[in-house]
Design a protein around this nucleic acid. Structure first.
Lengths: 152, 152
DNA sequence: AATATATTAGAATATAATTCTGTATTAATT
DNA sequence: AATTAATACAGAATTATATTCTAATATATT
């Protein structure tokens, strides 16, 4: 596994837009269609590229209200921690959940329609999970930067 | 703008994998290729789907160390706030930056290779930005859930 | 009910992906 | 250094898919 400069450029392009034609990437890189085609297959085979997805405009699908929820667990007994994580995976409003160091144990990214729906989510879903000690919600006022790309 | 059940199903499928053939989506939805083709074009035209991207495995590109940085500004004068946001946009290590309510003003998602690189980032880039009051770093121990899809 | 509009299916066509062939380049082996 | 093997490449040939076209059907509008 070693990516040369062309591979890195290609990954960068694919992270920006994966729906261009092979010819277009080829022109950007100064390679032939076949060369690019083989490189993409290789990046997929190596697991560098994991999948290709469509991104949606949250406003257009009425999930424009984003909250970063900080959670402290009540106790850190293994079984309870695992149950907590299992429950989180089931919540459709949660797109991301990180186990973190620091003041809190977990940080979640939650997408809902509005404050009313968020309250509903908190009351009926999140705090319904046992073992939650305390939560602190940071409401997203604006997305200064929002990219799925990893700079390489 | 009103998405029917088929549109929502289609958006869900495209958020999971946007590289299937029109025929495959058509079979999943019980529609013809043309019907699906037209619906996808419409979703793009309406701005529901904004773009198509490749996702990469952070481990494979040596950006496996993720940190959520909480930032408090020193002062909230408009010009300084805008300068801060402009500077953040330039930092390649930062994939996301949210202006939030609560204890801190901003929460950043940062991807680097390791702790050494993170320290370097903090010292030479992040805290080099003027107007930063204080920071609190939450190191990601594990990604319990990590999706780019919005549930609709 | 009549008309317009949008959605659909299937066929025809255009475009792009994939495979194939041969060549050049690089790396490995002796 | 010469030889072999492996890899990456370009261009042509083929296959598969996207896109367009046509006509029919459904949905909404008056």
């Amino acid at each position: 596994m070693d990516l040369d400069h062309l591979d890195k450029q290609l990954v960068t392009l694919l992270q920006e837009d994966c729906k261009k034609t092979t010819k277009q990437y080829a022109d950007s890189l100064g390679l032939s269609k076949t060369a690019v085609y083989e490189r993409i297959r290789r990046l997929e085979r190596l697991g560098v590229i994991t999948n290709y997805v469509a991104l949606v405009n949250k406003e257009k699908v009425k999930r424009d209200f984003t909250v970063l929820c900080h959670i402290r667990l009540a106790q850190h007994i293994k079984e309870n921690v695992l149950r907590f994580e299992r429950e989180i995976l089931k919540l459709e409003e949660v797109s991301e959940c990180f186990h973190v160091s620091g003041d809190y144990d977990y940080i979640l990214k939650v997408h809902v329609e509005n404050m009313t729906k968020f309250r509903e989510f908190m009351v009926t879903k999140l705090t319904a999970i046992s073992n939650i000690g305390s939560t602190q919600s940071s409401f997203v006022i604006s997305e200064v930067k929002s990219s799925t790309a990893i700079s390489i």
